[in-house]
Amino acid sequence: MGPIQQKITRKLEQQIAPEYLEVINESDMHNVPEGSESHFKISIVSDEFTGKALLAQHRMINAILKEELDKDIHALALHTYTPQQWQDINGVSPESPPCLGGSAK
């Protein structure tokens, strides 16, 4: 696991206390140098999302990862769930789209 992936994982664990968290580096699906940490997919389940609109849930994560989003992360697939929702979808989040070769950020 690369340093940015570790940092994202640590920040989310500390600040959201997720019931489930998966941070996947999907950079190798994209047109970036090998070993890049630019494209991530995060699936996160937390009771802190209960009663909050999706936009507010994503804003929580964006705020926690502001530094990484400004500096390092080019693309972020973000899937937030309450424990109930996660149970309803049997613990599977959607697949990220393929790269179409778009330019920086």
Partner: peptide, 15 residues
């Protein structure tokens, strides 16, 4: 979006 609906330049924009 990145690109246009007819010619998207990014998978997220396309979807």
């Amino acid at each position: 979006m990145k690109g246009t609906p007819q010619m998207p330049s990014c998978g997220f924009s396309s979807r």
